[in-house]
Computed example of a mutant assay.
Amino acid sequence: MQFGIFTVGDVTPDPTTGGAPTEAERIRATVTIARKAEEVGLDVFATGEHHNPPFVPSSPTTLLGYIAARTERIILSTSTTLITTNDPVKIAEDFSVLQHLSGGRTDLMLGRGNTGPVYPWFGQDIRQAVPLTVEHYGLLRRLWREEVVDWEGELRSPLQGFTLAPRPLDGIPPFVWHGSIRTPEIAELAAFYGDGFFANHIFWPPSHTQKMVETYRQRFAHYGHGSPESAVVGLGGQVFMRPNSQDAVREFRPYFDNAPVYGHGPSLEEFSSLTPLTVGSPRQVIDRTLGFREYAGDYQRQLFLLDHAGLPLKTVLEQLDLLGEEVVPVLRKEFAVGRSPEAPAAPTHQSLLRERDTRAAKAKP
Rank of each mutant, 00 (worst) to 15 (best):
R167N: 08
I83L: 15
P15Q: 07
V249R: 14
G297Q: 11
E23Q: 11
Q128T: 02
L155S: 05
D307F: 01
K211F: 08
A190E: 10
F6R: 00
P15G: 07
P131W: 14
L110V: 05
S58K: 02
G113P: 07
M109A: 14
Y223S: 10
V89N: 00
F162H: 15
I83S: 11
A221F: 05
P260W: 03
H100F: 09
P88E: 03
H349I: 05
P60V: 07
E326G: 03
E39N: 04
E342Q: 13
F45E: 00
L155V: 06
G324F: 03
R112S: 04
G153R: 10
E154C: 08
Q319T: 10
P266D: 11
D257S: 11
I33D: 00
V279T: 01
K333H: 14
L64S: 04
S227I: 02
F95C: 04
K90R: 14
I286S: 03
G18N: 13
P15D: 01
T209A: 11
A259F: 00
I186A: 00
I74E: 02
E355N: 09
K314Q: 10
N244M: 09
L108C: 02
I91C: 05
A129W: 10
P53M: 03
R293N: 06
R73G: 11
D107E: 15
V56A: 04
P329C: 09
R73M: 07
P341E: 13
S157R: 15
G18P: 12
D10F: 11
Y137D: 08
R339I: 06
T133D: 09
I286G: 01
M109N: 08
G161C: 10
T80F: 13
G65S: 10
I202H: 02
V44Y: 06
